[in-house]
Amino acid sequence: MSEPVVGLVVSHATLAEGLVQSVRQIAGAEADALRALSNEGCGPEALQKSVRDALGDGPGIVFTDMPSGSCAFAARRLTLDRDDTAVVCGVNLPMLLDFVFHRDLPLPELVDRLVSKGKSAITGSCREVAGHGDRAAAG
């Protein structure tokens, strides 16, 4: 079996820390499975170095809050010289919860799974539907 994938959430302000703490509280995930990093106070080079250092040497996924901006740019630059690293943009809590339970999957399979999970967790409703908010969402 290959080495489990490490996840690094990189975001603006304190979003990453909040998401990682939520995953740990809900799932009891091991501390090294998922890490948090803020771009606060970092220029492009410093952020890229922080991402590299926080990710470590093994296989990893960098989760970013948005598909553009300093967090995503730093993550994408990192993948240029690391074959065992992927970037997933638009991170959400259901995606991260799925990650901690399936991080032993091969990286390409894991990335596809997480993107699908993240997208399926996004729902919406109008006022007339919201009146039945206590019912489970129709699948």
Score class of each variant (00 low, 15 high):
Leu114Pro: 05
Glu17Asp: 12
Ala72Val: 07
Leu93Gln: 08
His132Asp: 13
Glu17Phe: 00
Met1Gln: 10
Glu40His: 10
Glu17Val: 01
Gly118Arg: 08
Gly90Met: 07
Asp112Gln: 15
Arg77Met: 12
His102Thr: 13
Cys71Phe: 03
Gly124Arg: 14
Val88Trp: 03
Ala46Asn: 00
Ala54Cys: 07
Gly131Ile: 11
Val129Arg: 13
Thr85Trp: 05
Arg103Ile: 05
Phe101Lys: 01
Leu34Glu: 06
Glu128Pro: 02
Gly41Val: 09
Pro67Glu: 08
Arg113Phe: 07
Val5Ala: 09
Leu47Val: 03
Ser120Thr: 14
Arg103Lys: 10
Val91His: 03
Asp134Thr: 14
Ala86Lys: 04
Val88Asp: 00
Pro108Ser: 13
Arg52Asp: 10
Gly43Asn: 14
Val20Thr: 05
Ser22Thr: 14
Ser70Gly: 10
Ala86Pro: 05
Asp57Asn: 11
Val5Met: 12
Arg127Leu: 14
Phe99Asp: 03
Leu8Asp: 06
Thr79Gln: 07
Gly41Glu: 05
Gly131Ser: 14
Val100Lys: 04
Glu3Lys: 13
Ala74Pro: 04
Gly69Phe: 00
Lys117Trp: 03
Gly118Asp: 11
Gly43Arg: 04
Gly90Trp: 02
Ser70Ile: 04
Phe99Cys: 01
Leu97Pro: 09
Asp83Ser: 13
Ser70Leu: 07
Gly18Leu: 01
Leu97Ala: 09
His12Val: 03
Ala130Gly: 05
Pro108Ile: 11
Val91Arg: 02
Leu80His: 09
Val91Met: 02
His12Gln: 13
Ala74Ser: 12
Val62Leu: 05
Phe63His: 00
Glu3Tyr: 06
Ile61Ala: 07
Val91Asn: 04
Phe99Ile: 07
Ser68Asp: 10
Ser120Gly: 14
Cys126Glu: 14
Ala16Ile: 05
Val88Asn: 03
Asp98Lys: 09
Leu19Glu: 05
Leu37Ile: 02
His102Gly: 06
Ala72His: 01
Asp83Ala: 15
Asn92Glu: 07
Arg35Glu: 06
Arg52Val: 11
Arg52Ala: 15
Val91Gly: 00
Leu80Arg: 15
Leu96Val: 03
Ala29Gly: 04
Pro67Thr: 07
Arg76Asp: 04
Pro67Trp: 00
Gly28Trp: 09
Ala75Lys: 02
Glu128Gln: 13
Ser2His: 14
Leu97Phe: 08
Gly58Tyr: 09
Gly58Asn: 03
Thr123Arg: 15
Pro44Val: 13
Leu96Gln: 08
Ser116Ile: 08
Asp112His: 12
Asp104Gly: 14
Ser70Glu: 02
Glu45Ile: 08
Ala16Trp: 01
Pro44Gly: 05
Val111Asp: 08
Ala130Ile: 12
Ala31Gly: 05
Arg24Trp: 08
Pro106Glu: 14
Leu47Glu: 02
Pro106Tyr: 08
Ala36Leu: 03
Asp53Lys: 14
Ser22Ala: 15
Ser68Leu: 06
Ser68Arg: 06
Glu3Ala: 13
Leu93Val: 00
Ile26His: 04
Ala136Met: 13
Ala46Arg: 12
